[in-house]
Nucleic acid binder design. Structure first.
Lengths: 230, 230
DNA sequence: AGCCTATGCGACGATTGTGTAACAGTCGAA
DNA sequence: TTCGACTGTTACACAATCGTCGCATAGGCT
């Protein structure tokens, strides 16, 4: 996942009608969709877009789906990306071969769109090992991602969802200065159109939340550059 | 159990990417993990490490998972170790054969990591009834999985099946925030397609049931994230 | 100093997430 | 069969939170 927002899916399907329907539904479900209609483009887009998951048609001109799958599963940097293969019923015999090639799941046409979504989400959940278990600490601030709780000097703080994500981001690299654009990317999500000034406001809110029981301001403003923790 | 409280798990999976993700998560969940990428090593490590539980991939080079399972269940000294088999969807037909071979549970890929953890804990609890863990407790709520009964302040509560499963899930990790998707996975099951809002409704019902004799609301809503106990 | 830009902050409607009641469908027991 | 318990979905209301604006203030230049 881009860190913050929509999961990115690369949809590779040569049949335009099917691709469009699928893309529409995926977007309605909150995915950021990149489309390709052949295997060659797909290989390029994998590098450019760094998708979180790939939905791949089996039969395609030029480079077939299974070939794309095989190549991606051989590269160490792309191996981790889950791949869901789509296949027409007639090709069902090749099912085993598909999974052997490294596909993570397999959906036979005609499929239920709901089912495909559910499987896509399942894959994302499987691969993304949540930041669980790691308690972030900085000075007297303690953040537990698992329980979604933030403490300062052993007092529980109350923060909104965006403030929480913002704090997680800052605490993952204390001292590092994040530009407003970077924060928008990391906290809000990649392609979301929001004024960069909004970051200021939320930093302000985060500050207030962090100091709700007293204490000094742990957030540093770097004029002309951005913000950092400490 | 291992000496220091951590349950030891032997993880046998030949695909490095999957093994790594799983190991990471298991360790984050408090397991002591030993890894093997083939059946032969697995057999040796069973003796050397004396794991409390084994997670075993079905398909593997050399000695297959099912073969490892069969051998271990024949030896009197290893028969008692619970084995959870992992299998790709295409091999689902072999399910019966897997359980016949003696596997104690069976998880189909793609699985939710959370679910796998939950099942592993369930197996450990089953094998080790003497150890505290049979009866789940949190504050004044007591849940006895054996008798399927829930008490609060020594009064018996009446809950429906789904409410019960939901409460079990939450009580297995008090404080941890579960997203609606995770709860759907853990309580309803992975290939059931149900609206996430349904979770809200059942949480509401659980709340009412838990407070039917008075008392405060033990379920915490984490806006934008999910629910947790306490 | 004066000027210009970047930032802090309060206030405002708009949006989103959640709680809950109501409803219809399913299932099993009597 | 009829009954009752339970389910998943929907609709509505309310509250939390959001993004933007306006203006005040602070910082960095010449």
């Amino acid at each position: 996942m881009g860190k913050g927002g929509q999961p990115r899916v690369l949809l590779v399907e040569d049949e335009p009608a099917q691709r469009t329907v699928l893309a529409y539904n995926l977007e309605a479900e909150g995915f950021a969709v990149t489309q390709a209609d052949n295997g060659e483009d797909a290989m390029v887009l994998v590098d450019e877009e760094e998708p979180d998951i790939i939905i791949l048609d089996w039969m395609m001109p030029k480079v077939s789906g299974i070939e794309v799958c095989r190549r991606l599963k051989m590269r160490p940097d792309t191996r981790g990306i889950p791949i869901i293969m789509l296949s027409a019923r007639a090709e069902e015999v090749d099912r085993i071969r598909g999974l052997e090639t490294g596909a993570d799941d397999y959906v036979v046409k005609p499929y239920s769109v709901l089912e495909l979504m559910a499987r896509a989400r399942a894959q994302l959940r499987r691969v993304r090992p949540s930041t669980a278990g790691v308690v972030l600490e900085h000075e007297d601030i303690r953040l537990d991602p698992e329980s979604h709780r933030v403490y300062r000097a052993d007092k529980v703080l109350k923060l909104g969802p965006t403030e929480f994500k913002l704090l997680v981001t800052l605490m993952e690299r204390p001292g590092r200065v994040f530009s407003r654009e970077q924060l928008l990317d990391l906290v809000w999500g990649r392609d979301i159109y929001v004024d960069t000034r909004t970051v200021d406001v939320h930093v302000g809110r985060l500050r207030k939340s962090l100091m709700q029981h007293g204490g000094s301001d742990p957030v540093r403003t770097v004029r002309g550059a951005g913000y950092s923790l400490g």
